[in-house]
Simulated assay, not measured.
Amino acid sequence: MTSRPMPGGWSTAVSSWLSWLRASGRPESTIKLRTTQLRRLAEAHPDRAPYSLSVDDLAEWLGAHAWAAETLRSHRAAVRGFYTWAHATGRAHVNPAAFLPTVKAAEGKPRPAPDPVIRSSRLRADPRDERMIRLASEAGLRSCEICKVHTDDVEPDMLGWSLRVKGKGGRVRLVPLSDGLASMLRNAPPGYVFPGRIEGHLSAAYVSKRLSRALDGDYTGHQLRHRFGSVAYSAERDLRAVQELLGHTRPETTARYVLVPDGAKRTAVMAAAS
């Protein structure tokens, strides 16, 4: 499907910025996201030249949407990136995004899907959905990572098998696999585990939708990832290890995925009281 064109002079300006992003090695997932975000800005100002907008125009546009904090932060980042590039390359005389107000990150709380829900969902899931559930709950993969799992990504390590995961920002990490999960992937037909029409595999959005439908109750694939982070942390109490397994760049992000076991809190209180 061909993306609809941007209005007026926006198309050329945004296209040049996207070329710059590609030259800097940004992954196509980021390019696609920034394209969508800048298109929204352009469609809100179809009769304005992109470099004629002021900081007030940008702030009014950002503030007019009932977006969650993380969505708002992401759109702000797109706007700042675009205008910082335009100013640095001489396309814009000023950078109207330089003084946009910061957006406070929402205080995330771990929301792991319960194990009984995962077990019952796996029992009634078809083989494809069960593989998705297992990759999210037992290996902590995002939907955008699950969709691109390839049988060639399973490789032997010193203790068994690991999965080479292509994560956000083009970052690659190795995630150790249980024997059962390794066997499931190694016995899959060669190629993408979830074949589809997006460069040979399913889209991340479709994987996310299937996970939500496959899980009993009001749970999502992302909550399977929270489940993985919480269980992985409870095993060794090593937040740094969980950070690497989840593919986070900052431990503060990982902390929002980890539900601290009640027993650990009680142990800490008893130690303080002794």
Rank of each mutant, 00 (worst) to 15 (best):
H65G: 01
W67Q: 05
A69Q: 13
T71F: 04
L72H: 12
L72S: 10
L72T: 12
R73Q: 14
R73H: 03
S74K: 11
H75M: 09
H75E: 14
R76V: 02
A77L: 13
A77D: 14
A78C: 14
R80M: 13
G81A: 01
G81D: 01
G81K: 00
Y83K: 04
W85F: 12
W85D: 03
H87I: 00
H87Y: 01
H87N: 10
A88L: 07
A88S: 10
T89S: 14
A92P: 06
V94W: 11
V94M: 07
N95Q: 08
N95C: 13
N95L: 10
N95A: 07
P96R: 13
P96K: 11
F99H: 09
F99N: 10
L100E: 04
L100A: 04
P101N: 00
V103G: 02
V103C: 03
V103Y: 12
K104H: 15
K104S: 14
A105Y: 08
A106P: 01
E107D: 03
G108I: 06
K109I: 05
K109S: 10
P110H: 08
P110E: 08
P110C: 08
R111W: 09
R111F: 08
P112N: 07
P112D: 10
P112G: 13
P114Q: 04
P114D: 11
D115R: 15
D115T: 10
D115Y: 09
D115S: 09
D115I: 12
P116F: 02
P116R: 01
P116S: 01
V117L: 10
I118T: 10
R119C: 02
R119K: 04
S120N: 10
S121W: 15
R122G: 01
L123P: 00
R124G: 03
A125K: 03
P127S: 15
D129T: 02
R131M: 15
M132A: 09
I133D: 11
L135Q: 09
A136N: 02
S137T: 05
E138A: 02
A139D: 11
G140T: 06
L141K: 06
R142F: 12
R142G: 03
R142T: 05
R142V: 06
S143W: 08
S143G: 12
C144W: 03
C144Q: 06
C144E: 07
E145C: 14
I146F: 04
I146Y: 06
C147H: 07
K148D: 11
K148M: 11
V149W: 06
H150F: 15
D152H: 10
D153G: 02
D153A: 05
D153H: 15
E155Q: 10
E155H: 01
M158Q: 13
L159K: 14
L159M: 12
